[in-house]
Structure formats: C-alpha cells, structure tokens
Design a protein around this nucleic acid. Sequence first.
RNA 1: GGAGGGGUGCCCGAGUGGCCAAAGGGAGCAGACUGUAAAUCUGCCGGUUCACGCCUACAUAGGUUCAAAUCCUAUCCCCUCCA
Length: 411
Amino acid sequence: MIERDLEKQLDFILKGVEDVLLPDELKTLLSNSIKNDKPLNIKLGLDPTAPDIHLGHTVVLTKLRQFQDLGHKAILIIGDYTARIGDPTGRSVLRPSLSPEKIDENAKTYMSQAFKILDESKTEVVKNSTWLEPLKFSEVLNITSRFTIARMLERVDFKKRFSNNLPITIMEFLYPLMQAFDSISIKADIELGGTDQRFNLLMGRELQKEYGQKPQIAITMPILVGLDGVQKMSKSLGNYIGVNENPNEIYGKVMSISDNIMIDYFNLLTRLPKNEIYEMQNDMKNGSLNPSVAKRKLASIIVENLYDKNAAEDAGNNFNRIFKDKAMPEEINEYIINKKNYPSGKIKATTLLTESNLCSSNSDAKRLIDQGGLKIDNNKVSDINLELNLEEINSKIIQKGRRFFLKLVVK
RNA sequence: GGAGGGGUGCCCGAGUGGCCAAAGGGAGCAGACUGUAAAUCUGCCGGUUCACGCCUACAUAGGUUCAAAUCCUAUCCCCUCCA
C-alpha cells in the first residue's frame, strides 16, 4: 500500500511546502515506515469557525490528500472543542466564541467540502472534544506545568498584544496546548498546517516529548495568493475561488489568474509530480509551451479535483466556445419578462439591462451600449434609446460583454 | 484621567473655503489585441438627463458664509503617546 520509493515520496511530500521541521527526521521516519510497511499518522486539525471554504483552504487539504495517495493515514481532527476558544493566531483581539450548535453546523458543511479534496474512505475523522472534554483538571495542570509564560510570549501574536497592553486571556494561552494535546491523543507522526500554524505545530512536538512520544514532524504550507495575484486569497477581499462554485465559474476564474502565479497554483493545488511542473515552467520560459495551454490544464485539473473529469471537460469546452469561438455557452440562464408590467408591449433596452441585473443602473446600461458592449442575438446594439418589442425578443439572447448571457422569456 | 492624530467614493489614499462628483492607485465594467476571464493598450467608473442641468455624497447633527470635504460647536467611532 505504501509507496516503496523513498525519493518519490519525498518528491511529492516536499512539493510546494513552505517549511519542514525537521527534514532529516522526516527522512528517517519515512524510510522506517517503508521498511516496516507501516503508514504514518498525518494530522490535520480544522476549526469549523467558518462554514465555507475556498481554494486557499484546500492547499493543506491537497497536501494531506497527497499523503493519502502515498499510502499514509490521514487523520482529520475537527476542532469542535478548540473552536469554542478560537485560535488566537493572527488575531489582535479575542475571538468571539461560537455556540456548540453553530460549530456543529459549520463542521458539517466544512466536511462535505473537504471531502471534495480528500479521499473520504481513507480518512479518519475525529472530534477533539472526544478527549478534551473529559480531561481532568489535574491533567490540565500537568500539561500547563510544562510550559512557561516566556515560552508562550515568544509567539508574535501574543507578544504584540502583550506589549500593546491588549488583553490575552489565560484561555487563549491554553489554545496551543490543546492543539498539542490533540497530537498526543492520535499519536501524530506528521502535522500539517499553514505557515501561521508554525508555533502551534511546534507546541505539539514539545508536548509529545514530555509525554514520551516521538515528536511529530511539522510541515507548513504557504499562503495561496488570490486572483489578483498579490494578496492572499480570502473571502473578504473577494479574490477567491469557492469550492462550491460551479465548474464553469471555477474554470474561468482560474483562467483569469496572472500567468506568473500559475506555477504556484500547480504546486499547491494539484498533485502533479514536481518534475512535470518544473518542465512546464521551463517550456513556458523558452517559448515551446503557450501559457494559455498550461493554464487550461491547471483549470481543468482543479475542476476535476472538485468535481469530476466530465465536468472539467465540459467547462473547458464552454470556455472555448465563449472565448475562442466567441460563441454562446450551452446553458444560458433565462430571464423572464412579465408582459403585464409593460402594457405598451415595449421595453427599453436600458430598462431591460437594469431590471435583469446585468447593469447596476440606467447610466451603467447606457455606458455599456455606448461602449458597444451589448448584443441581442449577436447583433450589436448601438442606440441608447432602443425600444424592444416584447413579441420580437421572446427567446432571444442578450449578451453583455463577452461573459454574460441571458435568454429572454416573455410571459 | 491627560496630550495629540484621524474618520473622504467598493477598497487604499490626496485634497484644508469657490477651479471638487472630489487627484492618484487598486478593484470592477467595456473595447482592441491574444490559442488566456493572463499581460499590454484605450475608454468608462454616484444617480438622473439626448444634452445644459438637477439631485445625492467627503463619520453624524447643527451652525458661520454669497459659497464648506475644507471654518465653528456638539456627538459617535478609531489610532498613538503619557498615567
């Protein structure tokens, strides 16, 4: 079951990672696992604080999936107990705590999305309330006695808050310890996390040592840049691709990323071998590979990962149809016009655009027409004041720019 | 508790009485180009109007002025320093 070739394993494991603590230990760990044919416990903890995930979150999931592919055991920890505190990482204020119901609800949607990446049949899912809830206070004391305040304050978030006289609750101090305790409970060999998790991952090592376990290897993954190519992918910045978006949308959004962040995406979001990615990079550099071809491949892989091969193919075809052949997509949303609302039997083109939400205002609609961006049944409209006869436009297709289509239905 | 700085359009940010619907950048939209929804270039980018204009807008509420984002007063919020 386990990939026998150590170099091959390393090749996949190290692809795209930000940092490994410690690389030498990782090597021996892997070769022992191969020798004894014993899969490693790969830990990934998720706090179900946000219900929706985007590609940025899948970086670490993809890495975990890669471990699964290599024959290791993925253990996904739902931080239902830790979520009650909230990870203080990157926070300058105390997180509002979530109700257990909300956490449960989040966890469900979170999981269903995470399993688009992970192989569900090979994933062990556990809630950390399983062991954190029944923990005795004496045990908590035992854990806390092994760490000092100074050690905790090494952490930047805490240090900043402390020196700025912002409150840090003792509870928050406990967070990294709880996460560390998770590692003990499942006997983690390797824990994955984002770069910001570095401190927490290290705590796991320390505590494992204290408990006489072999300390875990910590592997951190870099932050994924968003569609703008500059800032990190995040929902609030609007530069994200949601895991639940439809295939066409995902495909198109991937095609809209800058050529120069493509390789990062290949490294972090696909499971292609390192050398294949390297080759593509080279070929693009020397001109033998057109970047658009590579990007199509990327888009297609990402859609396939989240859906399936067919969806990826369809999305690719759809993209060709619209942007290469400049034709219409296969499926077009309908927009229903209610005759009753237009007793004259006519509707202004601008009104239609705003009513259907293609444009945000009449001025916007006028601008669009003015700039030559409106087509009705493939004919460019250039008259701002154009009035359309309801009978005539039934089942016709209006197009805004290159990407937005609506099929009119007059009822 | 004291001292100071600040709140501007979707975001960042300039503007300190009229030339301000408000520089510049980003995002967004459109056009050109392109085997890319890449890059690049061009235009647009509060609402309404064919247009002149009008309306709404620079934290909130009042006020001074022919005229305020800009001055005054009060209120709310944010930040920095001191205690």
